[in-house]
């Protein structure tokens, strides 16, 4: 399974992405488990709302953080996220 750059990316309805005040970080929650996210991973996942494909997501993040050259890092993380079932493409 690998990321299709053409298709829109959606956060999995089987998981929950949530800010944890006590930990001061975003986490992914799923049955009996939790993954703590660093800030950049959380920013990527928050944009996985089913309206963007890979290039659109990269463009939006590069604009938000006023930088360029993020594509490799973002696609690398999304591959991991897909493998873990945190995101999906229909």
């Amino acid at each position: 399974m690998s990321l299709n750059p053409e298709q829109k990316i959606q956060f999995s309805p089987m998981h929950r992405l949530q800010w944890e005040e006590a930990q001061q970080k975003d986490v992914i929650l799923y049955p009996e488990g939790m993954v703590e996210l660093n800030q950049s991973s959380a920013e990527i996942l928050k944009l996985c709302d089913g309206t963007r494909n890979l290039d659109q997501l990269v463009a939006d993040l590069e604009e938000k953080f006023a930088t360029t050259g993020l594509k490799n890092d973002i696609s690398g993380f999304l591959e991991v996220a897909l493998g873990n079932g945190w995101i999906q493409q229909n």
Binding site: Q18, E20, A22, Q23, V27, L29, E32, G33, M34
Partner: peptide, 8 residues
């Protein structure tokens, strides 16, 4: 309030 997040 203390930080528990998973609840069984």
């Amino acid at each position: 309030k203390m930080g528990a997040v998973q609840l069984g």
